[in-house]
Structure formats: C-alpha cells, structure tokens
Amino acid sequence: MFSDAINALIDGHIICRVTKPDLFDYLAEKSHRDRVSSYLQQIGWRVVSTHNQSGYFLVPHRPGEDTKSALNSMHKKIMGDVRPMIEFLTLCLAATQSDSVLRPGDHIPETKFAALIDESAKRRTDLQSLYARLIRGGGKTNTTEMLRAVLRALEQRGYLVEHGPSRELFVATGMVDAFHDLVDFLVENTPGAEETLDEPEVQGALL
C-alpha cells in the first residue's frame, strides 16, 4: 500500500474516496501519511490534503526560486480550469434547483441532467457557453452531446469519474474539493471579490 500510494501521488493523482478508496483509507491514517510524506520530502514533494480531508495530493516541499518556473506552469494549467468549473458548478445548481453545490461523491446522471438542462433556455445557453469554453472548435448543438463532451472534458481534468456499467453516471472526485479550496483562496486574494459575499443570502436574513 505504501508504494502504491507513493506511485499514485507521484503520478499526479488526487487520492480520494471516489477514485482510490483503498489508498484514501491508508492515507487517512496519520502515521501512514507521515511515512509517505517523509519519503516524498526527500525528492522535493510533500503530501497535503484538501481543507476537509477529502483528498490527498502532492505539492512542492519548499517552493522557491528554483521551482518558480515549474510553479508558474502549474498555475497556468490549474487557473485555466477556474472559469469553466465555476460555470459548471453554477449550471449544476440551476439544473438541480438545489442550494448544495457539487461535492466529492455527488452523482451526475447524464441523461437526467440533460433533460433538466433542456427544460430552460437559460440553462441551454449556459451549457453552450461552457461547451465552447472547454471544447475548442466543437461543433455540437444537441444538449445531450454537448453535455457528454463537457463531462468527458471534466473527467480528463480529474474532477469527475465515469461510474457504473451503464456508463451514464459521473461522480465528483476529491478534485472538486481542491477546487473549492482554490476558490476560497481566490476570493480572499482577488480585490473586490470578498465584498460580493456580503450580500444577504443567508437563512434568517428576513427574521
């Protein structure tokens, strides 16, 4: 298990209960995690978890000048996901008419989801915009086809995995929680973003 965990982490996976449940349980034990982390520190990496311990992944042990260009390259890749993921999460909220944002382990049944999007012109427009953002030059116009391409693209980026024999069900991975952590960071550090949270969208605001 020790070597499997190290190899999976080195391969750049986020280890979560959805993608690799055995390794996740192994790393959830602090003693195991410390052992893996101290091993990886010797080659410049350390194990960290998402804010609520739903996934484990590697970050540079001592980010400094020598790793700056590598960090910039990582930033560029990860930041490219921000706008599409924000659009995808808000589309999920609108389609399911839910107040609970997508979290690891949540299911996205493809056919049902496509039907929910088809119910509203605004949701269809939002899906088209998301599709255009994720699939460069994609020529699909059918809701089901566009949604499938979007879900596939997010699967390639590690946010979802396809699940079940019917292959119509996607499940959110621990990467989604890492994305929430990233949004927390961006909200705290982007001028003007934190003020938007002051709007009274809390239960009991009218009491």
């Binding site: 970050v59 980010p63 930033h75 990860i78 994305f179 990233l182 961006l186």
Partner: peptide, 17 residues
C-alpha cells in the same frame, strides 16, 4: 492573482506527468 500569491496548496498541486 495566482502568480502574485503562489502559496496555495490547490494551486501547487503536482500535475500528472
């Protein structure tokens, strides 16, 4: 923003090689 303040774990995640 990300480049100016790089010390966020989610931003430094090791990508797949």
């Amino acid at each position: 923003i990300a480049l100016d303040r790089p010390l966020c774990n989610a931003l430094m995640r090791k990508p797949p090689p």
